[in-house]
Amino acid sequence: MTPAEAAEHLTGAKAVGVRQLGGAVWEVGLAGGDRVVVKRHDEPGAARAEVASLRWLAVPDGPPTPGVRGQDGRWLALDPVEPGPPSPRAAEEFGRRLAALHAAGAPAFGAPPPGGPADASIGLAPMRNVASGDWAEWFAEHRIGRYARLAVDAGAMTATEARTVEGVRVAAPDEPPARLHGDLWSGNVHWAADGRAWLIDPAAHGGHRESDLAMLALFGCPHLDRVLAAYDEAAPLAAGWRDRVPLHQLFPLLVHAALFGRGYARQAVAAARSLR
């Protein structure tokens, strides 16, 4: 299907215009003045995983998520969200709402959203959701070890470097599983015209709440200090959480190493060495 055909199939309305937003994402104008955002996923099950993630993340008092208009196979249609500038006030509200989202909880570490597949994805990389009652064991095996091996297989990391990364001590405060966005880099925080920060492109699963915050800091986020201060006020973080940021950042760095190469592998090794 073309994006226009997908929009018509998923909404039942006639498409009257198509504008590419980037990659496999389009805005489609519909008859009557309505609009819809249409996405195409290459990986089987990825569209279904995104739908399940968006619905699971839509909790009372949490950050808003786009409404799902329809999904079929690799195609997904969402409500558009008008962009707007980030502001300190919106950042503080986002911090409080993110705390509420995490507090909504998950059945287990690694648990997928209800109705979501175990074999999901994070960006262009595969991500298997395997439920566990032990965060440290789960994170070491399914978020550090797995992606270190993928980085080695991709030629981005040496076996010696992978052993350095896999040798870090994985530990964090004993907290119940949080409901994570799962891919919370700044590009997946959509600052909107309504003055709020919306969540897009999730890879949702149960995890440790510090993981979302560490990923948010990895590539920079507008007014991050306001986000974190408001979060900590709403749901105080355990002592030493800043020292654990490199541990939680190993996961996204290794994903990027497997996908995009050597530079991210070097950052992952540096993060691992900083934890020793």
Rank of each mutant, 00 (worst) to 15 (best):
residue 1 M to A: 15
residue 2 T to N: 08
residue 5 E to L: 15
residue 13 A to P: 07
residue 14 K to Y: 10
residue 15 A to D: 09
residue 17 G to C: 05
residue 18 V to T: 06
residue 18 V to N: 03
residue 19 R to W: 03
residue 19 R to L: 11
residue 19 R to E: 07
residue 27 E to G: 03
residue 28 V to N: 09
residue 28 V to K: 03
residue 29 G to I: 04
residue 29 G to A: 14
residue 30 L to S: 11
residue 32 G to C: 08
residue 33 G to L: 06
residue 34 D to M: 11
residue 36 V to N: 07
residue 37 V to I: 15
residue 37 V to L: 13
residue 38 V to K: 08
residue 40 R to S: 03
residue 41 H to C: 12
residue 41 H to A: 14
residue 46 A to Q: 07
residue 46 A to W: 00
residue 46 A to S: 10
residue 49 A to S: 12
residue 50 E to F: 01
residue 52 A to M: 07
residue 53 S to G: 14
residue 56 W to P: 06
residue 59 V to I: 11
residue 59 V to S: 10
residue 59 V to N: 07
residue 59 V to R: 13
residue 63 P to K: 10
residue 63 P to I: 02
residue 65 T to D: 13
residue 67 G to N: 08
residue 68 V to L: 15
residue 70 G to L: 05
residue 71 Q to I: 10
residue 74 R to L: 05
residue 74 R to E: 08
residue 79 D to N: 13
residue 80 P to V: 13
residue 81 V to K: 04
residue 87 S to Y: 02
residue 88 P to Q: 02
residue 88 P to G: 00
residue 89 R to G: 06
residue 90 A to S: 02
residue 97 R to T: 00
residue 99 A to R: 01
residue 99 A to C: 07
residue 100 A to M: 06
residue 101 L to E: 02
residue 102 H to V: 06
residue 103 A to M: 08
residue 104 A to D: 06
residue 105 G to H: 02
residue 108 A to M: 12
residue 110 G to N: 07
residue 111 A to L: 04
residue 117 P to C: 13
residue 117 P to F: 05
residue 119 D to K: 04
residue 119 D to M: 07
residue 120 A to S: 15
residue 123 G to P: 06
residue 123 G to Q: 10
residue 126 P to T: 15
residue 127 M to S: 11
residue 129 N to H: 08
residue 133 G to D: 14
residue 136 A to K: 05
residue 139 F to G: 07
residue 139 F to K: 12
residue 140 A to D: 15
residue 141 E to P: 11
residue 142 H to A: 14
residue 149 R to P: 09
residue 151 A to W: 14
residue 151 A to F: 14
residue 152 V to N: 10
residue 152 V to M: 09
residue 153 D to Y: 12
residue 154 A to T: 14
residue 157 M to H: 06
residue 158 T to V: 13
residue 158 T to W: 11
residue 164 T to K: 12
residue 164 T to I: 15
residue 165 V to H: 10
residue 165 V to A: 13
residue 166 E to F: 12
residue 168 V to C: 08
residue 172 A to F: 06
residue 173 P to D: 13
residue 174 D to M: 02
residue 174 D to H: 09
residue 175 E to D: 14
residue 175 E to C: 07
residue 176 P to Q: 09
residue 177 P to L: 02
residue 177 P to I: 02
residue 183 D to P: 03
residue 183 D to N: 04
residue 186 S to C: 10
residue 187 G to F: 12
residue 189 V to F: 07
residue 193 A to C: 00
residue 194 D to A: 00
residue 197 A to H: 00
residue 198 W to P: 02
residue 198 W to N: 02
residue 198 W to I: 06
residue 199 L to Q: 06
residue 200 I to E: 12
residue 207 G to F: 04
residue 208 H to P: 08
residue 213 L to Y: 14
residue 216 L to W: 11
residue 217 A to N: 08
residue 220 G to F: 14
residue 220 G to P: 12
residue 223 H to C: 03
residue 224 L to E: 03
residue 225 D to Q: 05
residue 226 R to L: 02
residue 226 R to A: 03
residue 226 R to V: 02
residue 227 V to D: 00
residue 227 V to G: 00
residue 229 A to L: 07
residue 238 A to T: 06
residue 238 A to Q: 11
residue 242 R to G: 05
residue 245 V to S: 05
residue 245 V to G: 06
residue 256 H to D: 01
residue 256 H to S: 01
residue 257 A to Y: 01
residue 262 R to V: 04
residue 263 G to F: 01
residue 271 A to V: 01
residue 272 A to T: 03
residue 274 S to M: 04
residue 276 R to Q: 04
